[in-house]
Amino acid sequence: MTDLRDIIAQIDLLEPVPPVAAQILALADDPNSSLTEISELIIHDPALTANLLKICNSAFFSLSRRIDSVRDAISLVGLDQIVELVLFNSLSSNFNKELVGYGLGERELWRHAVSSAHVAAMLADRFGASQTKHLIFTAALIKDIGKLILGRFVAFSYEQINILVHSKGQSFNDAEHAIIGMNHEELGALVAKRWNFSEKLIYVMRHHHLSDESARQDLETVLVYLADLICMMMGVCTGADGLSYRFYSDVLNQLSLNGNDLQGIIAEAGKNQQQVEVLLAL
């Protein structure tokens, strides 16, 4: 087994997420916060502001006039979109890297992350979780951040993990834990903690494969889990772990989802993917 201290020490080698990202997230899901507070936060980060204005003025949004302030950006483009762009701006450089152990090429984990975040947001609307939509979106976006570090350890242990998965029927995350001593959920939660993300966000990341029974009762975690499954089934940049995670039909039953509903959701997600591809190309 790997010395876990070696793994944990790698957290500091990730490109740190600016504190402003966590602060904006907290404000975005707080019903008492104002747009002024959010735009104040953004304008104190000049690089972020410049990037945001550049993207808002790009052809993607095709707005009728040029945007020259963050306040304008929020009112014209919408808060959801601004939160999304702030997250993309803070995270994409980490996620763009190639991950050998997971069989993912450059930008592939990012593509999977952005796609599952969009599916998660769609599910949040459908299942009455619009209050915590930003949290759900963010959790789906960064849930696999542990893979950025664990990738090289998985690469060394892939044979052993593969035996547990394909001969013993263990899920990939359970096999990671058994062989390496830690899985990408646990490591991801540690990263989120180091970056001062909220307790709830850490919880969802830690349990997004629902191994823990109590997490199956938590709507936000369940929706992030479901979005992940849907992206695996659609085949959005799945890697070495493939679809080797557990399916809990009880969770779908709780949401009153049958097989047809699941197919309908996948069709809708597949249709929306075109929009996601445009966004990824920005």
């Binding site: 499954l229 399916f247 779908l252 097989g259 047809n260």
Partner: peptide
């Protein structure tokens, strides 16, 4: 090639 499923994804949920 394809038609894969999530582990334990059986019955009406097995889209593959």
């Amino acid at each position: 090639a394809g038609g894969a499923h999530i582990m334990d994804q059986t019955g009406m949920f097995n889209i593959g």
